[in-house]
Design a protein around this nucleic acid. Sequence first.
DNA 1: CAGATTGTTGTACGATCGTTCAACAAGCTT
DNA 2: AAGCTTGTTGAACGATCGTACAACAATCTG
Lengths: 201, 201
Amino acid sequence: MTANPFPRRAEPDVRRQGLIAACTRVLAREGAAGTSVRVIAREAGISPGLITHYFAGIDALISATYDHVDQTVAAAMAQAVDAAGSDPRARLDAFVTASFAPPIADRALLATWIAFWSLVTARPDIARQHDDQYAAYRARLTELLAACGVRCDHLRLAAISVTALVDGLWLELCLSPGCFTGTEAGVIARAHIDALLTRRA
Amino acid sequence: MTANPFPRRAEPDVRRQGLIAACTRVLAREGAAGTSVRVIAREAGISPGLITHYFAGIDALISATYDHVDQTVAAAMAQAVDAAGSDPRARLDAFVTASFAPPIADRALLATWIAFWSLVTARPDIARQHDDQYAAYRARLTELLAACGVRCDHLRLAAISVTALVDGLWLELCLSPGCFTGTEAGVIARAHIDALLTRRA
DNA sequence: CAGATTGTTGTACGATCGTTCAACAAGCTT
DNA sequence: AAGCTTGTTGAACGATCGTACAACAATCTG
């Protein structure tokens, strides 16, 4: 009855997703330095050789993991924005507030990001992947800001500004969780947006 | 004439500084992943075994490098602040503006920071070092903000806010230099401080 | 029930990792 | 000048890295 012609031991996509999930867990638990083929394979409950079979190499797996995490984040943000209704300001607030709560504010996510940043310096292709993903992030934020009535000629710097503030807060929140709370981060970000919007009016 | 009783091949402090400088250069050029004992030793023009002689291990060298870079940054910032004169607002502006110009906004610095962040997850002692250095950074910023008249009960969140914004801008400026300029980052940061100060008055 | 096909295993390989240590060399003391 | 102290070397070690590949097992075809 199944349409798949080769449903052997495990569906290829299921394996790939399983490997990505295992890679994410290892990245979170061991950090970028402790993430190796053997550790990931043990975490996924498979043989080390199978990783090379499904991915071109360990770098390709980490790249795919980054891509998957990025998509997960984007989806969670989009859902938070949609759940906020139709009021532009409420949607913008939901976007930044979601950044400081699970599953976004999470050490596992930070570990994945750091593992990637550490590759940006040496590998141009990964630098490009970072540029693309960040541009997409800013584009989504730009839409939300435009809907709130930010003037066109202020839009670019406004998006850069909010992105930087949210990122800085998110980074510190993950690195030093005891310093301030996610709620306080939300208060700071919304106050910054208040100032942005009133300056325009 | 020299007071040092054992000025053999090279002064111990000179060697240590040389190793730290070599480690900084390798970190910037190769990234955290490509930084090894042998590469650092070749960069410093010495034998691999000497590193273990001067530092407890490669981790201790990286830790010392982080510490040195942090002190260099703090010194550069302090100099920029002092050069701004005695006006509190001018001193605060100088602090944030210096963050987006050489030698602060530099890929080498970013690589060092990332190398350290990647160790925070797995090693509690390095997590503590990060917490301490960030607390010191916020303390210096808190002083500057207090001198500008920020109310006591707003001081903590104000410092966290400015720190996060400056860090976020600095991070993106180093990771994707083509996205916006250091001058634009300065404009954004000073506008944010404007909003902070006028809200208080 | 063969035979073909393919997911999966586990070992083996070469490279590189951080660290150790016996031997050497350079400077100080006597 | 001889002897001692100590910075420095470079080879060697065991561990671990990413990858390749022959053998095995499980499924599908006919």
